[in-house]
């Protein structure tokens, strides 16, 4: 059936994100919100108007436990992401430093983002985005390492402490671990504001389905992105 107000377009489907990556992504979003809020509360606890601990709801205890729960949920979901990483090509969109094209593309995109160029070539994921996500993983890795280093040291003889205790030694004391954990949390918040803006901009101004693909897993594009060979392509009308 055809109507006048209907537009027929040919689009290719680029299947990027496995369900595992998408589940991980949204668990990460939720857990980072929870982790940040509870983390700030641990750093600067609220005042409880009570005269006896028995009259309170053990709020700090709760806040800490929620923080730990969210941390475990986050780490557990990362296992799914590893599975997706192994099985699906689109889950492996690294910054390709080893390719000469990467640097030219970076300049191309950067000039556009500095508003010095009217447009940049289309990418499934542009080099700047790839670098920023790699950077986020570094930040998250710092949070996980420092977080577990503090958490497991309640029992310095345990397995957890022997896995993560070296972080405290390496940073020169557990106080430093606290500070690094706290400062990196803010760096992640700053990443978030840039990330939200860039994906929204790509989705609604550049027709790149940056937002929708994190729900559906696929990008349906009219144009052919430069880095299309990084994933498997299915033609769709």
């Amino acid at each position: 059936m055809q109507h006048d107000n209907m537009k027929i377009q040919k689009r290719r489907e680029y299947y990027l994100f496995s369900p595992w990556l998408r589940i991980f992504h949204w668990v990460m979003v939720d857990s980072i919100i929870v982790l940040f809020v509870t983390g700030i509360l641990i750093g600067k606890p609220l005042e409880i108007m009570a005269l006896e601990p028995t009259q309170t709801s053990m709020l700090m205890n709760w806040v800490r436990n929620i923080h730990f729960l969210a941390a475990y949920a986050f780490c557990a979901s990362f296992i799914l992401r590893i599975y997706g990483f192994i099985t699906n090509k689109g889950d492996r969109l690294f910054p390709r430093f080893w390719e000469g094209r990467f640097y030219a593309d970076t300049i191309d995109v950067a000039l556009h983002y500095m508003l010095l160029k009217r447009f940049h070539r289309s990418y499934l994921r542009n080099p700047l985005a790839r670098m920023s996500y790699a950077g986020l993983y570094v930040l998250v890795a710092i949070e996980v390492l420092t977080g577990f280093a503090m958490y497991y040291m309640t029992n310095p003889d345990g397995i957890g402490a022997s896995l993560f205790g070296w972080v405290n030694v390496w940073l020169g004391g557990e106080m430093m671990t606290h500070l690094v954990h706290h400062y990196t949390a803010w760096a992640i918040v700053l990443f978030t504001s840039g990330h939200l803006y860039m994906v929204t901009r790509a989705e609604f101004m550049e027709g790149e389905s940056e937002v929708s693909s994190m729900f559906s897993g696929s990008k349906l594009l009219e144009h052919v992105p430069v880095d299309a060979s990084d994933v498997d392509v299915t033609e769709k009308v």
């Binding site: 606890p45 609220l46 005042e47 409880i48 009570a50 601990p53 309170t56 053990m58 709020l59 700090m60 205890n61 800490r64």
Partner: peptide, 8 residues
């Protein structure tokens, strides 16, 4: 216990 209860 005062820490866990949030009494500082």
């Amino acid at each position: 216990p005062f820490f866990d209860a949030g009494m500082f």
